[in-house]
Amino acid sequence: MAEQTKQINTSIDEYLISLANSINHAQRYISQLRVVGQEGQPTVTYQLPRVDFELKLLFQLTATRPETAGLQRDMARSVGGAYLAATPISLETGEVDSATAAAASTIKGSFVAVPIHGGAPPPIVSIAWTRSDKAIDIKVSVRSAIGQNLPNVEVEFNLDRSLAKRVNPALGTETEEANVLAETSLSAVIARTDPRGEATSTLMIGEKALGRKVPVVIDVMGITKTMIFETTGNP
Protein backbone atom coordinates (compact mmCIF):
# COMPACT_ATOMS: atom_id res chain seq x y z
CA MET A 1 0.00 0.00 0.00
CA ALA A 2 1.31 3.44 -0.89
CA GLU A 3 1.93 5.66 2.12
CA GLN A 4 -0.88 8.07 2.85
CA THR A 5 0.78 11.39 3.71
CA LYS A 6 -1.75 14.05 2.77
CA GLN A 7 -3.74 14.94 5.87
CA ILE A 8 -7.00 16.82 5.73
CA ASN A 9 -6.30 20.50 6.30
CA THR A 10 -9.63 21.57 7.71
CA SER A 11 -12.31 20.50 10.18
CA ILE A 12 -15.42 18.58 9.14
CA ASP A 13 -17.76 21.55 9.45
CA GLU A 14 -15.42 23.74 7.39
CA TYR A 15 -15.23 20.99 4.75
CA LEU A 16 -19.03 20.84 4.50
CA ILE A 17 -19.33 24.63 4.34
CA SER A 18 -16.68 24.73 1.61
CA LEU A 19 -18.56 22.05 -0.33
CA ALA A 20 -21.83 23.98 0.03
CA ASN A 21 -20.12 27.17 -1.19
CA SER A 22 -18.81 25.28 -4.25
CA ILE A 23 -22.30 24.01 -5.04
CA ASN A 24 -23.69 27.53 -4.64
CA HIS A 25 -21.01 28.89 -6.98
CA ALA A 26 -21.83 26.20 -9.58
CA GLN A 27 -25.55 26.95 -9.29
CA ARG A 28 -25.00 30.67 -9.85
CA TYR A 29 -23.02 29.87 -13.00
CA ILE A 30 -25.68 27.44 -14.25
CA SER A 31 -28.40 30.01 -13.57
CA GLN A 32 -26.75 32.31 -16.12
CA LEU A 33 -27.08 29.66 -18.85
CA ARG A 34 -30.58 30.56 -19.95
CA VAL A 35 -32.18 28.93 -22.97
CA VAL A 36 -34.60 31.11 -24.89
CA GLY A 37 -37.83 29.26 -25.55
CA GLN A 38 -40.28 29.66 -28.35
CA GLU A 39 -42.00 32.97 -28.83
CA GLY A 40 -44.35 33.62 -25.95
CA GLN A 41 -42.76 30.91 -23.78
CA PRO A 42 -40.69 31.64 -20.65
CA THR A 43 -36.91 31.32 -20.67
CA VAL A 44 -35.64 27.93 -19.51
CA THR A 45 -33.21 27.87 -16.57
CA TYR A 46 -31.43 24.99 -14.84
CA GLN A 47 -31.03 23.98 -11.21
CA LEU A 48 -28.96 21.36 -9.43
CA PRO A 49 -31.66 19.25 -7.74
CA ARG A 50 -29.30 17.12 -5.64
CA VAL A 51 -25.58 16.64 -4.99
CA ASP A 52 -24.33 13.55 -3.13
CA PHE A 53 -20.96 13.47 -1.38
CA GLU A 54 -18.86 10.89 0.44
CA LEU A 55 -15.70 11.47 2.47
CA LYS A 56 -13.58 8.58 3.73
CA LEU A 57 -11.10 9.37 6.50
CA LEU A 58 -8.48 7.31 8.27
CA PHE A 59 -7.93 8.53 11.85
CA GLN A 60 -4.58 7.83 13.46
CA LEU A 61 -2.88 8.87 16.69
CA THR A 62 0.57 10.34 16.22
CA ALA A 63 3.15 11.89 18.52
CA THR A 64 4.12 14.37 15.80
CA ARG A 65 2.10 17.55 15.61
CA PRO A 66 0.41 17.64 12.17
CA GLU A 67 1.36 20.57 9.95
CA THR A 68 -2.32 21.47 9.68
CA ALA A 69 -3.03 21.26 13.41
CA GLY A 70 -3.52 24.99 13.66
CA LEU A 71 -6.42 24.81 11.23
CA GLN A 72 -8.05 21.66 12.56
CA ARG A 73 -10.32 22.79 15.34
CA ASP A 74 -11.86 19.34 15.84
CA MET A 75 -9.30 16.87 14.53
CA ALA A 76 -5.92 17.87 15.87
CA ARG A 77 -6.31 18.40 19.57
CA SER A 78 -3.53 17.32 21.86
CA VAL A 79 -4.52 14.58 24.30
CA GLY A 80 -1.69 13.53 26.57
CA GLY A 81 0.89 14.52 23.98
CA ALA A 82 -0.78 12.62 21.13
CA TYR A 83 -2.49 14.15 18.12
CA LEU A 84 -5.42 12.83 16.12
CA ALA A 85 -4.58 13.09 12.43
CA ALA A 86 -7.19 12.59 9.70
CA THR A 87 -6.09 11.35 6.28
CA PRO A 88 -8.53 11.16 3.36
CA ILE A 89 -8.36 7.91 1.38
CA SER A 90 -9.60 6.90 -2.04
CA LEU A 91 -10.65 3.36 -2.89
CA GLU A 92 -10.63 4.02 -6.63
CA THR A 93 -6.84 4.35 -6.95
CA GLY A 94 -6.15 0.83 -5.68
CA GLU A 95 -3.54 2.16 -3.22
CA VAL A 96 -5.57 1.20 -0.13
CA ASP A 97 -5.82 -2.40 1.06
CA SER A 98 -9.01 -3.97 2.41
CA ALA A 99 -7.93 -3.73 6.06
CA THR A 100 -7.30 0.02 5.79
CA ALA A 101 -10.56 0.53 3.93
CA ALA A 102 -12.46 -1.32 6.66
CA ALA A 103 -10.91 0.87 9.37
CA ALA A 104 -11.79 4.11 7.59
CA SER A 105 -14.65 6.31 8.77
CA THR A 106 -17.19 7.39 6.16
CA ILE A 107 -19.12 10.64 6.15
CA LYS A 108 -21.69 10.94 3.41
CA GLY A 109 -24.80 12.92 2.71
CA SER A 110 -26.67 14.96 0.16
CA PHE A 111 -27.32 18.59 -0.61
CA VAL A 112 -30.89 18.95 -1.87
CA ALA A 113 -32.28 22.10 -3.47
CA VAL A 114 -35.36 23.38 -1.63
CA PRO A 115 -37.26 26.65 -2.05
CA ILE A 116 -36.28 29.33 0.43
CA HIS A 117 -39.02 29.81 3.06
CA GLY A 118 -41.03 27.06 1.39
CA GLY A 119 -41.30 29.10 -1.80
CA ALA A 120 -43.00 32.01 -0.02
CA PRO A 121 -41.57 35.55 -0.08
CA PRO A 122 -39.06 36.20 2.71
CA PRO A 123 -40.41 37.70 5.93
CA ILE A 124 -40.00 41.34 6.85
CA VAL A 125 -37.77 41.73 9.90
CA SER A 126 -37.61 45.07 11.69
CA ILE A 127 -35.62 45.95 14.80
CA ALA A 128 -36.29 48.66 17.38
CA TRP A 129 -34.58 49.43 20.67
CA THR A 130 -34.84 51.64 23.72
CA ARG A 131 -32.04 52.63 26.09
CA SER A 132 -31.96 52.70 29.85
CA ASP A 133 -29.18 52.76 32.44
CA LYS A 134 -26.54 50.27 31.25
CA ALA A 135 -29.14 48.33 29.24
CA ILE A 136 -30.67 48.33 25.78
CA ASP A 137 -34.04 46.64 25.18
CA ILE A 138 -34.08 45.10 21.69
CA LYS A 139 -37.41 44.30 20.02
CA VAL A 140 -37.55 42.25 16.81
CA SER A 141 -40.76 42.27 14.76
CA VAL A 142 -41.37 39.53 12.19
CA ARG A 143 -44.12 39.89 9.59
CA SER A 144 -45.03 38.25 6.32
CA ALA A 145 -44.63 39.99 2.98
CA ILE A 146 -48.30 41.08 3.20
CA GLY A 147 -47.90 42.46 6.71
CA GLN A 148 -49.29 39.61 8.82
CA ASN A 149 -47.72 39.03 12.25
CA LEU A 150 -45.75 35.77 12.43
CA PRO A 151 -46.06 34.21 15.91
CA ASN A 152 -43.91 31.43 17.40
CA VAL A 153 -40.93 32.23 15.17
CA GLU A 154 -37.51 31.54 16.69
CA VAL A 155 -35.27 34.60 17.00
CA GLU A 156 -31.63 34.19 18.01
CA PHE A 157 -29.54 36.92 19.66
CA ASN A 158 -25.74 36.69 19.93
CA LEU A 159 -22.83 38.93 20.86
CA ASP A 160 -20.19 39.13 18.12
CA ARG A 161 -16.98 39.19 20.15
CA SER A 162 -14.62 39.06 17.17
CA LEU A 163 -16.37 42.03 15.54
CA ALA A 164 -16.21 43.89 18.86
CA LYS A 165 -12.41 43.72 18.67
CA ARG A 166 -12.40 45.18 15.17
CA VAL A 167 -14.83 48.05 15.71
CA ASN A 168 -13.36 49.25 18.99
CA PRO A 169 -10.08 51.17 19.29
CA ALA A 170 -7.07 49.39 20.73
CA LEU A 171 -7.46 48.95 24.48
CA GLY A 172 -3.78 48.59 25.28
CA THR A 173 -3.31 44.85 25.74
CA GLU A 174 -4.65 41.70 24.08
CA THR A 175 -6.19 40.63 27.40
CA GLU A 176 -8.17 43.87 27.65
CA GLU A 177 -9.34 43.52 24.04
CA ALA A 178 -10.43 39.93 24.60
CA ASN A 179 -12.37 40.88 27.74
CA VAL A 180 -14.18 43.95 26.40
CA LEU A 181 -17.49 42.03 26.43
CA ALA A 182 -16.66 39.77 29.38
CA GLU A 183 -19.33 41.32 31.62
CA THR A 184 -21.82 42.06 28.84
CA SER A 185 -24.69 39.66 28.20
CA LEU A 186 -28.15 39.21 26.68
CA SER A 187 -31.20 38.37 28.77
CA ALA A 188 -32.41 35.95 26.07
CA VAL A 189 -30.26 34.17 23.50
CA ILE A 190 -33.20 32.39 21.88
CA ALA A 191 -36.71 33.85 21.98
CA ARG A 192 -39.95 33.20 20.12
CA THR A 193 -42.27 35.81 18.73
CA ASP A 194 -45.54 36.43 20.56
CA PRO A 195 -48.97 36.74 18.87
CA ARG A 196 -47.96 40.24 17.75
CA GLY A 197 -44.93 38.78 15.95
CA GLU A 198 -42.46 40.34 18.39
CA ALA A 199 -39.53 38.91 20.35
CA THR A 200 -37.38 40.80 22.84
CA SER A 201 -34.01 40.55 24.54
CA THR A 202 -32.19 43.00 26.79
CA LEU A 203 -28.54 43.84 26.20
CA MET A 204 -26.98 44.28 29.65
CA ILE A 205 -23.80 46.32 29.28
CA GLY A 206 -20.83 45.48 31.48
CA GLU A 207 -18.44 48.03 32.94
CA LYS A 208 -15.66 47.20 30.47
CA ALA A 209 -17.98 47.84 27.49
CA LEU A 210 -19.03 51.33 28.59
CA GLY A 211 -18.05 53.89 25.98
CA ARG A 212 -17.44 51.11 23.46
CA LYS A 213 -19.31 49.62 20.50
CA VAL A 214 -21.21 46.38 21.16
CA PRO A 215 -22.17 44.25 18.12
CA VAL A 216 -25.29 42.08 18.39
CA VAL A 217 -26.15 39.53 15.69
CA ILE A 218 -29.84 38.69 15.20
CA ASP A 219 -30.92 35.62 13.19
CA VAL A 220 -34.51 35.10 12.05
CA MET A 221 -35.64 32.47 9.51
CA GLY A 222 -32.34 32.55 7.62
CA ILE A 223 -32.09 36.34 7.74
CA THR A 224 -29.11 37.75 9.65
CA LYS A 225 -28.83 41.34 10.83
CA THR A 226 -25.91 42.85 12.75
CA MET A 227 -26.56 45.80 15.01
CA ILE A 228 -23.68 47.82 16.51
CA PHE A 229 -24.77 49.70 19.63
CA GLU A 230 -22.65 52.59 20.85
CA THR A 231 -22.65 52.75 24.63
CA THR A 232 -22.05 55.74 26.84
CA GLY A 233 -20.02 56.18 29.99
CA ASN A 234 -16.48 55.34 31.00
CA PRO A 235 -15.18 51.81 31.72
Score class of each variant (00 low, 15 high):
residue 9 N to G: 13
residue 12 I to W: 04
residue 14 E to S: 11
residue 14 E to N: 08
residue 15 Y to S: 04
residue 19 L to V: 04
residue 23 I to H: 01
residue 26 A to D: 15
residue 46 Y to W: 09
residue 46 Y to T: 13
residue 49 P to A: 02
residue 50 R to D: 05
residue 50 R to M: 04
residue 56 K to C: 08
residue 61 L to K: 09
residue 68 T to V: 08
residue 68 T to S: 14
residue 69 A to G: 09
residue 87 T to L: 12
residue 92 E to N: 08
residue 93 T to S: 10
residue 94 G to C: 03
residue 95 E to I: 10
residue 99 A to W: 03
residue 105 S to N: 14
residue 110 S to T: 13
residue 113 A to P: 00
residue 114 V to W: 07
residue 117 H to L: 00
residue 117 H to Y: 05
residue 119 G to E: 03
residue 120 A to W: 04
residue 120 A to E: 03
residue 121 P to W: 00
residue 123 P to A: 07
residue 124 I to V: 15
residue 127 I to P: 12
residue 128 A to N: 15
residue 131 R to I: 00
residue 132 S to Q: 05
residue 143 R to A: 08
residue 143 R to T: 10
residue 146 I to M: 10
residue 150 L to P: 08
residue 158 N to I: 02
residue 159 L to P: 11
residue 160 D to K: 09
residue 172 G to R: 02
residue 172 G to H: 07
residue 174 E to H: 09
residue 175 T to F: 04
residue 176 E to L: 12
residue 179 N to I: 00
residue 192 R to E: 05
residue 196 R to A: 13
residue 200 T to V: 12
residue 201 S to D: 05
residue 215 P to E: 07
residue 218 I to G: 04
residue 221 M to G: 09
residue 221 M to A: 13
residue 223 I to N: 11
residue 228 I to H: 03
residue 232 T to L: 14
residue 235 P to V: 10
